[in-house]
Nucleic acid binder design. Structure first.
Lengths: 251, 251
DNA sequence: CGTTTGATTGACCCCACTCAAACGTGGTGG
DNA sequence: CCACCACGTTTGAGTGGGGTCAATCAAACG
């Protein structure tokens, strides 16, 4: 509420070149020259507060977005009103790609906590693509990544038990923490249990019970939304993510 | 086995311009000039026989593909060996986009019946993209479509009951038949029950029972893989795909 | 024809959902 | 500072949808 220190947002803008997420985000593998061109069209918006939305299902797709800090969930809604969370997005991840289908978003993006977002306006992106083959390739790579990620998600919802799902979920988070050079065996989930459950296609109670179960078994440590992973190998075994060795001599 | 009539494959090639699937497939909305350029790099392979694969999980992504006739399933495999079918692909649909992530396919494509496939080699596609902004846009559109389609799939696997899933599945097929100007209330499923069940995240027995149930209720007619839809509205109601009217005064 | 593969049907059971209540925990106002 | 409420989370008890197992049936194939 106090405005003792007026802030010039332009001064706060971090160039892609200087951004610590460079290697995870859009500029991954791009030349310095290309990166500087990209940087010119990137807009850093006002931070998005908790529960505020970046775009809604049906909105015109004005831009694609990169999470710079905080976290965002995207969800699709069905006719009868219930929604399915399709992803939780951490810094460096790109969202809004569904908008390329027909110029309208087919899902909704909401901040799980206060988050800063970089926007890449559609028109300027398309314009830049025309003269920049590297950027085109990047687009395809990012979209291909999303498609592959959703295949993995389908596998989870279609074939895994509740136990395997939560274990997979935790391992996925742990891996993404590691990619960001954060502690990978101790992290805070920014979403409520309800959202975890929704994402995994389970009831809240089931998620709660599984957390308790894992903790009793000494595999993880849970304090509210703070998660500590104590026994990664056992977690992997629960997730079914065990390597060829075991499976080989089972046959 | 008999080679009485040697066939020159080149003579069989149908140009994109002459293809009846033009409006559904890659060239949708492209100018005649652009289409002719695209046509130059499209390769029409030998037909793929039933159960033959177009590419495997892990293969180098050499091309993206369009189904020209027949049908293809794509599936992702988990560590513990079970697979999830991620899509059934009809003529005019594009597959292999997952290969853009890192140059390797992350799923497997197998023909459900004898099928002809058009291949667009990666290298030449990327080359052509550089000089053809329309093609770039097309790529984004096609990939955006795939992402949106998978969101719908996640919603199904995450939130729907068995009954809703099969109803949604049948309606989706019906709609795609209509897009192709084929009979939309009478069609043949090219995949076995096992594959339907796998795709929907259900057991074969459940699918079989549901078919029987729908038939007893007079909603559909089932003869082996031949499906007739008798009461679309009731099927929509089962799928949860009812429009705002009903839901409005339910509240 | 027998054989094989795919589909159906029935009996049984279990995992995860639902309903319900208790339990922190954090925010708010007196 | 504490009492209060609201919300998210946990825990328990009971149930049902859909999975599993097993047998039968039908069609396709050699």
């Amino acid at each position: 509420m106090s405005n003792l220190t007026p802030i010039n947002l332009e001064q706060l803008k971090v160039s892609c070149e200087d951004c610590k997420l460079r290697e995870l985000c859009f500029p991954q593998g791009m030349s310095t020259d290309d990166m500087q061109l990209l940087d010119k069209i990137v807009v850093q918006r006002q931070p998005l507060h908790k529960n505020e939305s970046l775009y809604h299902d049906g909105d015109d797709a004005q831009a694609i977005y990169a999470v710079r800090s905080g976290s965002v969930k995207t969800s699709a809604e069905s006719f009868n009103g219930d929604e399915q969370i399709v992803g939780f997005h951490l810094p460096g991840e790109i969202i809004g790609l569904d908008g390329f289908r027909d110029g309208h978003h087919s899902c909704t993006a909401v901040a799980l906590e206060t988050s800063s977002i970089c926007a890449i306006p559609m028109e300027q992106l398309e314009e830049l693509c025309k003269s920049m083959p590297g950027l085109q390739k990047q687009m395809r790579r990012v979209m291909g990544k999303e498609i592959s990620a959703e295949h993995a998600m389908l596998l989870m919802l279609g074939k895994m038990s509740a136990e395997e799902r939560l274990a997979t979920f935790l391992l996925s988070f742990s891996q993404r923490m590691e990619e960001r050079h954060w502690k990978h065996n101790e992290f805070v989930l920014s979403m409520p249990r309800q959202d975890v459950a929704n994402y995994l296609g389970l009831a809240v109670e089931t998620v709660s019970r599984l957390f308790a179960h894992y903790q009793n078994a000494g595999i993880i440590e849970v304090d509210r939304r703070r998660i500590g992973i104590l026994d990664v190998m056992r977690l992997r075994r629960m997730a079914g993510t065990v390597h060829a060795e075991k499976i080989a001599h089972a046959k």
